[in-house]
Simulated assay, not measured.
Amino acid sequence: MSIAMMLIAYLLFTMADTTNKWMTLLGYPALQIAFTRYAFQLVITSAEVSYRGIERREITENFWPLVLRGAALASATVANFFALKYLSLSMYSAIMFSAPIFVSLIAWPMLGERVGPWRWFAILAGFIGVLIIVRPFHHNFHWAAIFSLYGAIALAFYSLLTRKLVQKVRPHVMQFFAGAFGAVVLLPFAIWVWVPVEPEVWLMMFWVGFTSWFGHEFLTRAHKHSGASVLMPYSYSFILYMTLAGYLFFDELPDWYTALGAVVIIASGLVIWVREKRLKSSEANA
């Protein structure tokens, strides 16, 4: 069941990102799309919070970590929406899945997690995979890849902050706070760049907010039933979904550099996953 939830979550994220790319190509600013994504999330999570309730201490005792988490997610969203206009969905998704590599790198100073030689090797290989995809010194290099790379780094911080908060703050409260933070912070920027919205585009914006929220719900529930050590390999379904969506909707196919870099990143992530799984197993048996 948890594996099915994981696959559904990344299918929903693919739907959201595909719709985002479509709207940016229609000429809608990334800041406007990002604001409406969080505004719709805020509406949905407000209804959920009114039903499930919220404890004041969850916010007051964890306010600054929640702010940093919200800032990491909101800035990653804006950067990714900028990048989606110019990058193929396959390239974008491959760069985004360097996030687990950044998680392993940042977890050492941030959480004090031990990083052994195998994980250092995987981190280095993952960076090489990113360079293969981005090609910073190649004539085909596009500046939008930098935005996508920043999005991956910001999501790594978001993931680590979530890991720290999950034992103190309930998931629906974190979803509500992230929606509120993103909507409030992005509102003045959205007003500044606002473009009149056609009725059918409003539906697309609502769809992005809904699929993003629903995807996070499936992701959270999947991790409640199974640990990350079981679920992590299935997250790479996102690259397959995005490649298929890019071909079907935008006639995009990954070039050899993107395909090779994606393989290197996936292999690096799986090495990190195997080492973490063995470390947790040895700790459990100690």
Rank of each mutant, 00 (worst) to 15 (best):
A245Q: 02
T162Q: 09
P171H: 06
K224Y: 07
S88Y: 01
I123H: 02
A125Q: 09
I266A: 11
L161Y: 01
A71I: 08
L87M: 04
A71K: 13
Y28K: 00
Y247H: 09
A286I: 14
L42G: 03
W143E: 11
L248F: 10
M6C: 02
K280R: 11
H138A: 13
F102V: 01
L66Y: 06
L165T: 09
L149Q: 03
M1W: 05
S226P: 02
L131T: 11
G209M: 06
A83L: 04
T211C: 14
L186I: 05
V78Q: 00
L68K: 13
E61M: 10
F181L: 12
W108Q: 01
R52Y: 15
T77S: 06
M23E: 01
S212L: 13
P254H: 03
A262M: 06
I3E: 00
M242F: 11
I132S: 05
L279E: 15
L219H: 12
L248T: 06
I128D: 06
P196C: 07
A145T: 08
I146A: 11
G209S: 07
I106C: 08
I106D: 02
Y92A: 15
L160E: 02
P109N: 01
W213H: 12
V208H: 00
L231F: 05
A144K: 00
I133G: 02
D17R: 08
F210Q: 00
M205I: 07
S104E: 03
L155E: 14
R135M: 06
V193W: 02
G151K: 04
S148Y: 09
A262S: 11
F189N: 03
M23D: 06
G179Q: 01
